[in-house]
Design a protein around this nucleic acid. Structure first.
Lengths: 143, 143
DNA sequence: AATGCAAATGAGAACGATTATCATTCACCT
DNA sequence: AGGTGAATGATAATCGTTCTCATTTGCATT
């Protein structure tokens, strides 16, 4: 199984504490790929692995800064995190069910770099979301 | 000059009241293209055209729903609005000074449609922001 | 294995952006 | 001009998130 080795945390300069191991383990379990702080908090509560909400927020931010997680700001105000698996991608978010699908398009990526360069900007990051209705059967069509 | 004709509001089904005319006029004045609710509120205060903050929020949302304004959710939590002038575009946001530059790239647009279609989604909307450092002299490099 | 200490945690207060409530005021029709 | 339902403004409430600070914990050292 996946056991979120303490080494993972040590390697990025974070002391391996119980709350941090539980939170990382939750992302590594692969149950849910995209989770908000609230999602993580409730998930841990439900399994009896209580971690304070403040700690969840702190740890998620630390993990993001350490590069273990990636933060997304979709519509709706709240931040969503996912495990950073190296390969950058963008998202399509279903407006009906909230389901998130990932995609990568090299043409889009390269055009972005070109456009920014032409305007005299040095790109740090970008954020692309497509909001759509997912027409597939698997869409429960319900938030 | 620009006088935000009452007709503009009537046409979209909104009673033309003083607060609404002032807010629309502010966007039409072209002083500042991208403004948050707070920006609008302060701007109106500074010219003595007092409008309650709650009203600013309400009116901005109504204008967005009516299609007069477009709402953007850049990083940083607060919503930013701009006059809807028909032509869609994306944004580059300077992480130093917060300056916003607009761009449109048809290659990016068409690739998005294609990608979504391949994944079985019906696109409603999309949101693309490039976060960068603006290297131009005009950048005050300060938030 | 016991000790010490800085770093991490948790409970709750505080915060910033936004929305809801509700009494008062206004736009507009007759 | 007058009546009425919609719009406004002051304020309370809400939501996601961060801060504060007393207590606990990881872990290196005895």
């Amino acid at each position: 199984m996946d056991k979120s080795q303490p080494e993972n945390l040590k390697n990025v300069g974070l002391k391996s504490t119980l709350p941090r191991l539980k939170i990382l383990g939750l992302f590594e379990s692969g149950q849910e790929r995209h989770m908000s702080a609230e999602d993580v908090y409730k998930q841990l509560l439900s399994t009896g692995d209580d971690v304070g909400l403040a700690t969840v927020y702190r740890v998620l931010t630390q993990f993001q800064q350490a590069g273990l997680l990636v933060r997304h700001n979709f519509e709706g105000g709240k931040s969503v995190f996912e495990l950073n698996q190296g390969k950058h991608h963008d998202h399509i978010v279903c407006l009906q069910c909230g389901h998130v699908e990932e995609f990568y398009d090299s043409a889009i990526e390269s055009r972005q770099k070109k456009v920014a360069a032409e305007l005299g900007f040095e790109v740090h990051d970008h954020s692309l979301q497509i909001y759509a209705d997912c027409t597939k059967a698997k869409c429960p069509n319900k938030r």
